[in-house]
Simulated scan of single mutants.
Amino acid sequence: MVECKLCKNAISMTNPVCELCDFNFESESIGDEYKCKMFHTKLKKEYPWYKEVEFLSRLQKLTRLSNARMSRLLGIKSRSILSRDLPLAQGVATHPELKNIPSKSKAFKRLRNLSSKQIYMKEEELQKKIYTAWDQTFFADEWFLFEKNDLLGQYDTGEVGTMDLLAHNHKRNKWLVVELKQDSSSDDTVGQILRYMGWVKKNLAKQNHIVEGVIVCGSYDIQMEYALSCLPSVGAYIYRLRNNEIEFWPYKDGFGKAMQALENLDPKIRKKVLKNMY
């Protein structure tokens, strides 16, 4: 006997299809959708709430179904339910104490409270953390920090302010100005990083060098996205603090859509995706 990857019940080693949820572990697909739907209904009625959200998370990972397709498969009327339950499943994995909460709605509120405490850092703390962990970020694959004196990665221009981080490309004649914002960003931030980039272009870069910029901030702002759409040399990421480590999410389309697309990816795969996005 072996354990079904989807419903976690024991199944015969000779039969690749689970009798309870009809998951085929050879093709990683659902054959009888009605049987899968009935198993999900039973989970909701007879088992603790976290068993259902864990099942939903496994179903998406194993079958790679979209939220819309999963909603139709399981008879879930609103796709917004999955948008809540799938992050909740990830939250349970990170905070197993959530299983002790009696209801799903209360657990989700508790998870939001836990997450809000881990979202933002003071700018000086954020700068120091990225500086000390630079080699562990995806930036380090392409860039090394260009340091002047003992400023922990900061670079004082003496004219237009102090850059949070300044980096140079490992192989090419390219510079990267990194501007950090604790929480919200705006199109004013774009003007600020352009001033820094202009200073680097005039004072550090040679004639054939390229100067790029990246903004790292805590939340999304539509005005800044419009400004960035006309500046191919400036990118942006939203940061999140998870298990005391910083993760970077693509700014385009906002944090929510980026999370839906990348949250459940293997960390190694996610790192490659992020690298290719910049």
Rank of each mutant, 00 (worst) to 15 (best):
residue 6 L to R: 13
residue 7 C to F: 04
residue 13 M to D: 12
residue 15 N to T: 10
residue 15 N to P: 07
residue 16 P to N: 04
residue 16 P to H: 09
residue 17 V to K: 03
residue 20 L to P: 11
residue 22 D to K: 12
residue 23 F to H: 01
residue 28 E to D: 11
residue 29 S to D: 01
residue 30 I to Q: 05
residue 36 C to V: 03
residue 37 K to M: 07
residue 38 M to H: 12
residue 39 F to T: 00
residue 41 T to Q: 01
residue 49 W to A: 06
residue 50 Y to D: 09
residue 50 Y to S: 07
residue 52 E to S: 13
residue 56 L to N: 07
residue 57 S to K: 15
residue 58 R to K: 13
residue 62 L to M: 03
residue 65 L to R: 14
residue 65 L to Y: 05
residue 74 L to N: 00
residue 75 G to N: 12
residue 77 K to I: 12
residue 77 K to G: 09
residue 78 S to N: 08
residue 83 S to Y: 15
residue 84 R to C: 05
residue 86 L to G: 09
residue 87 P to M: 11
residue 87 P to C: 11
residue 93 A to G: 13
residue 96 P to C: 06
residue 100 N to Q: 08
residue 104 K to C: 05
residue 105 S to M: 13
residue 105 S to T: 15
residue 108 F to N: 12
residue 111 L to N: 06
residue 115 S to R: 13
residue 117 K to A: 02
residue 119 I to S: 04
residue 120 Y to C: 10
residue 121 M to T: 02
residue 123 E to L: 10
residue 124 E to L: 09
residue 126 L to H: 07
residue 127 Q to P: 01
residue 127 Q to W: 01
residue 129 K to E: 08
residue 131 Y to K: 14
residue 133 A to E: 08
residue 133 A to M: 14
residue 134 W to Y: 01
residue 134 W to S: 06
residue 135 D to C: 08
residue 136 Q to G: 07
residue 138 F to P: 11
residue 139 F to C: 03
residue 142 E to Q: 08
residue 144 F to N: 04
residue 145 L to K: 09
residue 145 L to S: 00
residue 147 E to Q: 04
residue 151 L to D: 00
residue 153 G to Y: 00
residue 160 V to Q: 10
residue 162 T to P: 00
residue 165 L to M: 05
residue 167 A to H: 02
residue 173 N to D: 13
residue 176 L to K: 10
residue 176 L to T: 03
residue 176 L to C: 00
residue 178 V to L: 08
residue 179 E to Q: 05
residue 179 E to A: 10
residue 180 L to H: 04
residue 184 S to Q: 15
residue 185 S to A: 14
residue 190 V to L: 15
residue 194 L to K: 09
residue 197 M to I: 07
residue 203 N to K: 14
residue 205 A to P: 05
residue 205 A to K: 05
residue 207 Q to R: 15
residue 208 N to P: 06
residue 210 I to T: 09
residue 212 E to Y: 01
residue 216 V to C: 01
residue 220 Y to S: 03
residue 224 M to A: 14
residue 225 E to Y: 01
residue 227 A to N: 02
residue 228 L to C: 14
residue 230 C to T: 10
residue 232 P to Y: 00
residue 234 V to M: 02
residue 237 Y to H: 04
residue 239 Y to V: 04
residue 240 R to V: 10
residue 241 L to C: 11
residue 244 N to L: 02
residue 244 N to H: 06
residue 245 E to I: 03
residue 246 I to M: 13
residue 247 E to G: 03
residue 251 Y to D: 00
residue 252 K to W: 06
residue 252 K to Y: 06
residue 252 K to T: 07
residue 255 F to L: 10
residue 256 G to K: 15
residue 259 M to K: 15
residue 260 Q to M: 07
residue 260 Q to Y: 11
residue 262 L to G: 02
residue 263 E to A: 11
residue 266 D to K: 08
residue 268 K to P: 02
residue 270 R to Q: 14
residue 275 K to C: 09
residue 278 Y to L: 10
